[in-house]
Amino acid sequence: GDMPWVVKAEEKMKFDSIFESLGPVGGMLTGDRVKPVLLNSKLPVDILGRVWELSDLDRDGMLDRDEFSVAMYLVYRALEGEPVPMSLPPPLVPPSKR
């Protein structure tokens, strides 16, 4: 659809720079690379597990830059006190994955 992605351009640039700083291989970050970053948020591990479930859209155990942005978006919102949804709302699905 043509629904705007909830991750705005400015926020996407920030998430992309974090993504690049973690040393993606072939445009992907493995769970081992992403896990310590999410743990840094100090959010409960069960919440972070759900963030991963919602972000790894193709369930390959790795995040590309759009999936990583979904993960970071959910973590930042959770830190602001918003609950992490049980399933990914359509506006949060990256346009490249629809």
Partner: peptide, 13 residues
Amino acid sequence: QYPAGGSSTNPFL
């Protein structure tokens, strides 16, 4: 959801 006997793709599980 995960392959039987296979490991999870979720690093937090």
